[in-house]
Design a protein around this nucleic acid. Structure first.
Length: 597
DNA sequence: ATAGGGTTAG
């Protein structure tokens, strides 16, 4: 009675006073321990029992699987099979199947399936649901559908359907997932959330947002999972407005202090350009911070050029004995890269493996190559890539290629480009990267040749675009965008700015133009880079003194970087530019990256 | 007295 009514303490107290315990009360106690996550205590009771029935075993196996000890669940199951006096039932098998699903053990799952068929178990109900779950989790969506045909959709519950829906999402097949979602009669929060996550992961940001709205309309309460997923959508869009709305919703529902929501808020604010709000969210969870909270904050700070603070935070994390993982180290290494801290970066790279036992991944290696390359140590970068313990990938060679442009090294550049193309023949970055090195070296002919062969092979270059959000409207600009309806006003403003900043000492960096043209034409091209258009437009349309935030898909060029510094001073405005990798905060004539990026 | 789905980081 006490166990059922949730009063675990009283239930245990009573249990301990019983001298002649029967199997049922033992079983109840095992379940109680499992519910409270006390796995070892449950096992101790289980081992102490002299007589164990099927339910005792089932409770242990189910409890293990529920608490994430799936491997232990399977081991216990095999021990159970050795006790010939016992017969497994549908509950045993469904727990075992879900453990197989969680462990992605397709083979073991198939064996259980075979057993179910041989023993002629009823697959309507728990066993059918569990089979669909197992196959969906193991990437066997086809088999899951077959099982579904046999056992019938009417007996399948929302849980199995959600697993199937997720199976499709994992394969990137969003449409069949949506079909399942639409066919569900009773959709609960979990099913809604799964679908929203599916969209958020596959670039369907608008679909996710729409779904979220209909969910609210139907009167369903989002929980911390849903909110975290929606904050991820805000991050994808890098939209502060969108993110603030979700934040407000979370506030209303009393979920802002849930760790997963806070973590998502930290990364959303960082990615949407507001690092101080990110700090606030991090501050609000103080002692409940988990490893992800720290990593999110460290990475956010590194992206915003606050490298020292990022490293201080990392040391604080270590001193609190919170283990860093491979993603934490990506943040740490990139913090070093963007401050040019070569020695520090090198020692952290060593520490990662020697102290924390984390094997370097391609991301870590790319960071190291970047670290050396940007600091002008092309030789070290090259040596590093040759000594890598894993096969260098496109990103690694890309980092090397990028540093060749700064250091005008044609030989290494050609080799790096070749390696990239041997891995990914249509990699546009390899072509443009190499062409850029040729241009930077003044070899216009060669550069043009590469651009031509790019065209012949129909390799599409990624177009640079910049965008900004004003109220709820997103304005997108391409380079030299003649199509914008307010183009004349933008041009006029840009013309004035150009004259003024030149008076202040700005010199257009014609070397940033990688085509063979005379200087005046080059200057025209530079003047109409997408981020400059976006900034001119932003200055026209937003209130004075407000911070202007611009997003860009590629990296900012040297000329724009220099021009924006002057513009921030001229207009007395803080300008934030998020490029492909980082945030630049321009204020009063200087940039937070200290011109190192 | 027994099963079960979905989050967050680069």
């Amino acid at each position: 009675m006490y166990a059922k009514s949730g009063d675990a303490v009283t239930a245990m107290a009573v249990f301990n006073r019983i001298e002649l315990r029967n199997v049922s009360s033992w079983n109840a106690v095992i379940t109680l321990h499992m519910q409270r996550g006390e796995v070892e205590e449950a096992l101790a009771q289980f081992e102490e029992m002299k007589q164990r029935d099927v339910i005792s075993w089932n409770s242990m196996i189910a409890g293990y699987s529920q608490r994430g000890f799936d491997a232990r669940a399977l081991i216990l199951f095999s021990e159970m099979l050795e006790e010939s006096s016992l017969k497994t039932d549908k509950y045993t098998l469904s727990s075992v199947l879900s453990a197989c699903g969680n462990l992605q053990e397709l083979e073991a799952g198939k064996q259980v399936h075979a057993y179910i068929i041989r023993a002629e178990f009823d697959t309507s109900g728990p066993a059918g649901n569990a089979l669909v779950y197992m196959y969906s989790k193991c990437g066997g969506v086809g088999m899951a559908k077959k099982v579904l045909e046999v056992c019938g959709t009417s007996t399948l519950n929302v849980i199995a359907f959600t697993a199937l829906l997720n199976g499709y999402i994992k394969l990137g097949d969003i449409d069949p997932a949506r079909q399942i979602f639409d066919s569900l009669h009773e959709r609960d929060v979990v099913a809604w959330t799964a679908m929203i996550v599916g969209y958020a992961q596959n670039g369907g940001n608008n679909d996710a947002t729409e779904l979220f709205r209909s969910m609210l309309e139907e009167g369903l309460m989002p929980n911390s999972y849903t909110l975290a997923a929606m904050l991820r959508v805000s991050s994808n869009l890098a939209s502060l407005n969108h993110g603030k709305q979700i934040h407000a919703t979370a506030d209303k529902l009393g979920e802002v202090l849930s760790v997963s929501v806070s973590n998502s808020l930290i990364s959303m604010y960082a990615r949407a350009g507001n690092i101080s709000c990110a700090r606030k969210s991090f501050g609000l969870i103080q002692r409940r911070r988990d490893s992800v909270s720290w990593t999110s904050m460290i990475t956010g700070l590194a992206q915003h050029g606050h490298g020292e603070e990022a490293l201080e935070l990392f040391e604080e994390k270590l001193s609190l004995d919170i283990k860093p993982d491979h993603i934490t180290y990506v943040g740490v290494l990139s913090a070093c890269t963007h401050m040019g801290l070569v020695e520090k970066g090198r020692s952290y790279f060593r520490k990662m493996r020697d102290v924390h036992g984390i094997e370097p991944t391609s991301s870590h290696c790319a960071c190291m190559i970047d670290l050396y390359g940007r600091a002008g140590l092309l030789r070290e970068a090259h040596d590093f890539i040759r000594s890598m313990s894993i096969e260098p990938d496109v990103v690694a060679w890309g980092s090397l290629l990028a540093s060749c442009r700064v250091h005008k090294n044609l030989e290494v550049a050609a080799m790096a480009a070749e390696r990239i193309l041997s891995i990914e023949p249509d990699h546009s970055g390899a072509y443009s990267g190499l062409a850029n090195v040729y241009s930077a070296c003044g070899k216009w002919e060669e550069a043009a040749k590469i651009r031509r062969s790019m065209k012949e092979r129909n390799v599409k270059k990624e177009q640079g675009i910049s965008w900004l959000q004003i109220k709820s409207q997103v304005h997108i600009f391409g380079a030299d965008d003649a199509l914008h309806p307010q183009r004349d006003a933008i041009d006029l403003r840009l013309g004035k700015i150009w004259v003024e900043i030149k008076k202040m000492g700005f010199v257009p960096d014609t070397a940033s133009v990688l085509h063979y043209l005379d200087d005046e034409l080059k200057e025209q091209l530079l003047k109409h880079h997408s981020e400059k258009l976006a900034i001119a437009f932003g200055l026209l349309k937003t209130p004075e003194n407000s911070t202007l935030t611009i997003m860009k898909n590629l990296r900012v060029c040297n000329d724009c970087h220099s021009a924006i510094k002057y513009i921030s001073k001229l207009a007395g405005r803080e300008i934030v530019v998020r490029d492909a990798t980082h945030f630049h905060h321009f204020k009063d004539g200087s940039c937070s990256c200290r011109d190192y990026w």
